[in-house]
């Protein structure tokens, strides 16, 4: 399926060439931290935040879960190096690329469009650039990365990708601005 896009007062586009891994592990463990540092040369993100290593993103999902997002072209190599670095430790590393969908919102009013659909405070003081939050988009679970002041990435399950695309397209449509 090609990338699809909606152009409104905020643009919504689906990103197809992304791979995602779920890592379940005790993130407080020094051995796990060291293994991740070795494989990705990046420190663990703090709760409610994400960390960037080159084109890859690590998101803090819960005290025992990380989401790793990488361009599909680099995914196989990254998976192997993670698998090697974590071998022998009590972890679960799973390729969930086919289970998830990723969207990007761009535009000056991305915070407003997100605020229409997720029960979270999108004010810059509460959700600064670099923040990550798991929440819901209307009726389905999802996650939000505040990438830049005018760019937000969204993750949801692939089974609800059409719903989420339609949802954000409607919220971003011209004429639906909250503040003129």
């Amino acid at each position: 399926m090609p990338n699809r896009e909606f152009q409104g007062y905020v643009n919504v586009s689906q990103i197809m060439d992304q791979s995602m891994f779920t890592l379940r592990a005790n993130l407080a463990s020094t051995k796990i931290k060291a293994a991740l540092k070795l494989a990705m040369s990046v420190a663990l993100p703090k709760p409610g935040a994400c960390a960037t290593a080159g084109a890859c993103t690590l998101a803090w999902m819960s005290p025992d879960e990380l989401l790793i997002i990488a361009p599909s072209a680099e995914a196989q190599k990254l998976y192997s190096s993670l698998d090697t670095a974590l071998s022998g430790l009590h972890v679960l590393l799973e390729d969930v690329s086919d289970a998830r969908a990723k969207f990007i919102l761009t535009g000056a009013h991305v915070r407003e469009v997100l605020a229409k659909l997720a029960p979270m405070d999108t004010h810059p003081a509460q959700f600064p650039v670099g923040s990550f939050n798991r929440t819901r988009f209307a009726q389905v679970a999802g996650a939000v990365f505040m990438e830049k002041d005018d760019m937000i990435s969204l993750i949801c399950f692939r089974s609800v990708q059409d719903y989420v695309f339609a949802l954000f397209s409607a919220a971003a449509a011209h004429g639906s601005e909250v503040f003129q």
Partner: peptide, 12 residues
């Protein structure tokens, strides 16, 4: 107390 986020009733 785990993720530190304020969650409203519809997320709980």
């Amino acid at each position: 107390p785990y993720c530190g986020r304020d969650k409203d009733e519809t997320e709980l």
